[in-house]
């Protein structure tokens, strides 16, 4: 029987599953996290298992991570998302030493060593700035989908200063700018610039190494990534599916421990 193991990452906005068989990814899933984390965990796992026609009983070991990790009913072990993002990113980019994970609810700057173990980290404190929730609120204020934000912002020839990074005040500010006729692309460029400035401060707390990666949902926003790269003078490594790095790390831990 093959050694099949899984990692599950219950984030505040999305939940992800990665299933490994003999060291390779054979299935994954990504769904919105619902109000019931246990139910979300079951649905995300069922979706990934369906891809390969297997059931929960076929999995030898499951590691849970993320904000809702303690309520995954079928997990054998729980590990923090910081360790899992470090592990997952190291697997994809072994030379990376600084990771910025920009998730739905928080932002984490992580320093890792050559083994993929975290040696230092910093997180934003009780503030939505720089998170997926913040960008979702801004997208709603501009009547755009979250996917449109990045490409649209790249069309801007200039950006406008957004003075507030509080999700509530920034939404009012953005709405007022739109009413004044400032193009959406210009507003978005300003928002992305402000986010880049804020997460730059977070990265400085752990130290920025040239080999640097971004994971999490916001890594898919080309506008934020571009602004951050310009500010840092570095090219960011981004995995083909940056949102599953935590679940991948959890699965890799499961492979070691299961």
């Amino acid at each position: 029987m093959d050694h099949i193991i899984a990692g599950i990452d219950i984030g505040s906005a999305t939940s992800k599953v990665v299933i490994l068989r003999e060291g390779g990814i054979v299935a994954s899933s990504l769904i919105r996290t619902g109000a019931d984390s246990a139910d979300t965990a079951h649905r995300a796992m069922a979706m990934a298992l369906k891809e390969i026609g297997l059931g929960l009983a076929d999995l030898h070991y499951i590691v849970a991570t993320g904000y809702g990790r303690i309520i995954v009913p079928f997990a054998h072990e729980i590990i923090t998302e910081i360790a899992c993002h470090a592990k997952g990113t190291h697997f994809v980019f072994p030379h990376v030493r600084t990771i910025l994970d920009m998730g739905g609810q928080d932002c984490k700057a992580i320093r890792i060593d050559e083994r993929g173990l975290h040696t230092s980290f910093a997180m934003n404190d009780k503030c939505a700035a720089g998170t997926g929730r913040f960008l979702e609120a801004m997208a709603r204020a501009l009547d755009l989908s979250i996917q449109e934000l990045g490409p649209l912002s790249l069309q801007a020839s200039e950006s406008v200063a957004v003075s507030s990074m509080c999700a509530v005040f920034a939404k009012s500010e953005v709405t007022a700018m739109a009413r004044r006729g400032i193009p959406q692309s210009t507003i978005l460029a300003g928002l992305h610039e402000a986010i880049a400035e804020r997460v730059h401060g977070l990265l400085k707390r752990v130290g920025i190494e040239p080999e640097f990666a971004i994971s999490g949902g916001i890594a898919k926003n080309v506008g934020v990534v571009r602004k951050l790269e310009e500010r840092l003078g570095l090219k960011a490594h981004i995995a083909p599916e940056p949102q599953i790095m935590g679940a991948l790390g959890a699965a890799l831990f499961a492979a070691e421990r299961g």
């Binding site: 904000y67 923090t80 998302e81 910081i82 360790a83 173990l117 980290f121 009780k126």
Partner: peptide, 23 residues
Amino acid sequence: LQGDYSLEGLEQVRGRIEAFVEM
């Protein structure tokens, strides 16, 4: 860790403490 002198605030730093001890 920064807090606000509340039990809820302490719960918010639990994950960071776990990651630190794990590290």
